[in-house]
Each structure stands twice: as structure tokens, then as C-alpha cells.
């Protein structure tokens, strides 16, 4: 059974239909890269999967749980799917440790000691155990993004959504974040990432989704999509890079 089932999803902002019937099934452990021009709907699709945008038609299910627009269903789904943002979105008033602990103690009602153990474990996993007491504004962009990854992991999600997580970083900081993602992929985490890192997509992903004008235009293993694009639009997109 697929872990994430996206069926005929449509999403419009006013008169502007951004997603025009998306179908995508993701198997456990798959790493999916979504590529495409800006405005093709790739970020919107990702945001729909954990309910940050409500869909107009179609259905989304994660591990059998339907995405429904009420508070209870949304929260159940978000416990299964973590999300990492382009702008990190760390909480500025909390330390690094506090950032990783807060959702555990508030949402899962985990005890403080247990939450701290989990936080330290996850921060070690992204190589930032020593920054536990630092504040976000004392970290580089790459470090902040790794904290955001640790924060998402601390909720023990079964899948992670990554929305252009290296796009706001200086070039020299991109690799440290990608290295963490690469490790997660190797450990079998299910990942769906919107990315412009084509080399990374080629090396790490099991499938690549090329979106164009609100539709899945091409989909396949990276070697096929990158080496043998079938459509003029994908050829043109890859040619631009």
C-alpha cells in the first residue's frame, strides 16, 4: 500500500487554478524530488499534503489517514508528516533545544526530561548537539535549517516534506543541509522535496516529478527524467539550468 496517496487534487486561488488534477502515489522509503518552473504548483502541492492549503477537489491520504479540513484530522495528519520550510521558521524566543522540545511537550505532552533526551538525540543527528543552548539568531542559515530538520524529526514523523529547503542559503551552506537529508534518505525516511538542486535529485531520489502548469508533466526515475526527457517542456526546463 502506498504511504501517501494523492488523487485528482485540484487547488485554485480565486480564478487561478494552480493544481489541475494531481495524481501521485508515494511508497514507504521513497525519496521524491518535485522540480519545475516557479508557478508550476510544486510548493502548493507540498503545502496541500499537510493541510497548510485546503484542496478544492480530490483526496490526499497519508498512511490511510484522510486529509480533512477539520482541526482533529489535520493534527492527526501533521503528526505523521513533518515539514521543513525555505525560511527555516525557527522560533526566535526559544533556544535551539527549546525549539526542538516545544512541540513534543505541547502536542504530545511528553515530559520535559524525555523531550530533552529526544531533542539532544535529534540535534546530534544533524550535528548540532553542542548548540543546544544557543538561540537561532546565533546560528548560520545552514545550522538553522538543520535545527528545523531536528525539530521536525523530534515528532517522529513517517514522512518529511521539504519546501526548497536550501534556496535561502548561501551556496557554501547548501551542502551541510543536503548531507543531512542524504543521511535521512539512506535511513529509509520517506521524503518529498521541492528542490532546485538537480545534482542532488539525480543522486539521491528514487523518482523525479516534473510539474508544468499545475500538472504532473513527467515522472520517472532520475536517470530517465534527466537523461531522456520525453517532453519539450522538460527538455526546455533542463536546458535552462
Amino acid at each position: 500500500m502506498s504511504l501517501i496517496e494523492i488523487t485528482e487534487v485540484r487547488k485554485a486561488f480565486g480564478d487561478n487554478e494552480v493544481l489541475k488534477g494531481i495524481n501521485l502515489d508515494v511508497q514507504p522509503g521513497e525519496v521524491i524530488a518535485i522540480i519545475g518552473k516557479s508557478g508550476s504548483g510544486k510548493s502548493t502541492l507540498l503545502r496541500c499534503i499537510n493541510g497548510l492549503e485546503t484542496i478544492n477537489a480530490g483526496s490526499i491520504a497519508v498512511a490511510g489517514a484522510q486529509l480533512l479540513p477539520d482541526e482533529l484530522h489535520l493534527r492527526a495528519l501533521r503528526l505523521k508528516v513533518g515539514m521543513i520550510f525555505q525560511q527555516f521558521n525557527l522560533f526566535p524566543h526559544l533556544t535551539v533545544g527549546g525549539n526542538v522540545m516545544v512541540s513534543q511537550t505541547v502536542v504530545k505532552k511528553t515530559g520535559k526530561a524525555e523531550a530533552e533526551t529526544m531533542a539532544r538525540k535529534m540535534l546530534d543527528r544533524v550535528g548540532l548537539g553542542h548548540k543546544f543552548d544557543a538561540y537561532p539568531d546565533e546560528l548560520s542559515g545552514g545550522q538553522q535549517q538543520r535545527v528545523a530538520i531536528a525539530r521536525a524529526l523530534a515528532m517522529e514523523p513517517i514522512a518529511l516534506l521539504c519546501d526548497e529547503i536550501t534556496s535561502a542559503l548561501d551556496p557554501e551552506l547548501v551542502q551541510e543541509v543536503l548531507a543531512v537529508v542524504r543521511e535521512l534518505a539512506a535511513e529509509g525516511m520517506t521524503l518529498i522535496m521541492v528542490t532546485h538542486e538537480m545534482k542532488f535529485a539525480r543522486d539521491v531520489c528514487s523518482r523525479v516529478v516534473f510539474m508544468h502548469q499545475g500538472r504532473v508533466h513527467e515522472i520517472g526515475p532520475p536517470e530517465e527524467v534527466f537523461s531522456n526527457p520525453q517532453t519539450a517542456e522538460l527538455k526546455q526546463f533542463l536546458g535552462m539550468l
Partner: peptide
Amino acid sequence: GQFEAGASLAMSPIQTFRHV
């Protein structure tokens, strides 16, 4: 993004307001 980060961590709107 702060509201969205709270929501994506499964916090309710009230919890997000209170803690974030």
C-alpha cells in the same frame, strides 16, 4: 511562517498562539 511552523508541528491554533 511562524504560524505555519506551529501548525506543521501539529500544534492547535491556540497552542501556536500561546507558545510561538
